[in-house]
């Protein structure tokens, strides 16, 4: 498995798109959060806008806020995952890998390892950013470990988003189309679907749709506050969402594996 990852690294280490998208993720995520913590970004805009968030970057709130925004920025890495995989199909290097002696499954597992490794790296990065933001805004590391499980939520959210990207790439095989579908689904279609489902179910089971099941783990922080003020509606537990995410990841794995095994390359 480590050998598979080593060869994936050989493929990527000189690939400019890899570094650009990784770089965008690593630079824009802290900049954006800095914008909120420094009061540069406000809701309502202009100098009179309301800044909900200046206190949101102290421990332990920092984990929830960083995690929420990172759950958007992780899309850069989903796109990267799509591009890396569709490139293999476009340039037929997937064929070459198999001809040179990988089994189809080994090719697939190399990519799965990449999903896990990139998710782990993004999570470690989020953890470091959280410590830096929290420390800068709290003045100490007191309370840093409270709510630290949200970093773990981010890891499985990353697995979900990158795994979904991998699944789409294997299914669609064309990068433009796969990225377009990813955006259309994640920004619009899924919301439409869970809106419809939740209207007809007692509990909001629509929230268990592929990406939403992870989004629920790191919700918009002040929306949680707002919800707690509203009449209690029945919700699903966090462990349900964790389980939901895991099941979706398993579905992507099995679907990707089956497609690659059953198809001409």
């Amino acid at each position: 498995m480590i050998e598979l990852l080593r060869i994936e690294w050989l493929k990527l280490k000189q690939y400019r798109t890899f570094w650009v998208l990784m770089g965008l993720f690593m630079i824009v995520l802290p900049l954006w959060n800095y914008g909120f913590s420094a009061g540069l970004l406000k809701f309502g805009g202009g100098k009179k806008g309301v800044n909900f968030l200046t206190s949101a970057y102290t421990f332990p709130e920092v984990w929830g806020h960083l995690g929420f925004w990172a759950s958007y920025f992780i899309m850069f890495l989903s796109f990267l995952m799509i591009i890396i995989n569709t490139n293999e199909f476009t340039f037929r290097t997937n064929r070459q890998n198999v001809i040179d002696g990988w089994s189809r499954l080994q090719f697939f597992h190399g990519k799965v390892m990449l999903v896990v490794a990139m998710s782990a790296l993004a999570t470690i990065y989020l953890f470091v950013l959280g410590l830096l933001f929290g420390w800068a805004n709290s003045g100490s590391l007191n309370g840093a470990m409270t709510d630290i499980y949200k970093v773990g939520y981010f890891f499985i959210l990353s697995l979900n988003y990158l795994g979904f990207g991998l699944f789409l790439a294997i299914w669609i095989r064309k990068s433009g189309l796969a990225i377009g579908l990813f955006l259309m689904y994640s920004l619009f279609l899924e919301h439409l679907c869970y809106g419809i489902i939740n209207r007809f179910t007692v509990k909001p089971y629509g929230n268990l749709l592929p990406l939403q099941s992870s989004d629920e783990l790191l919700p918009l922080p002040w929306a949680t506050m707002a919800k707690s003020l509203l009449p209690v509606e029945s919700t699903l537990s966090m462990s349900t969402y964790v389980l939901g995410t895991m099941i979706w990841c398993l579905v992507y794995y099995l679907a990707g594996r089956t497609m690659l095994q059953k198809r001409d390359w």
């Binding site: 493929k11 000189q14 690939y15 400019r16 340039f91 037929r92 290097t93 064929r95 070459q96 001809i99």
Partner: peptide
């Protein structure tokens, strides 16, 4: 093996 077309990573 060489099958059909040469397939390599174009940026390497």
């Amino acid at each position: 093996s060489l099958l059909e077309t040469p397939n390599f990573y174009h940026y390497l």
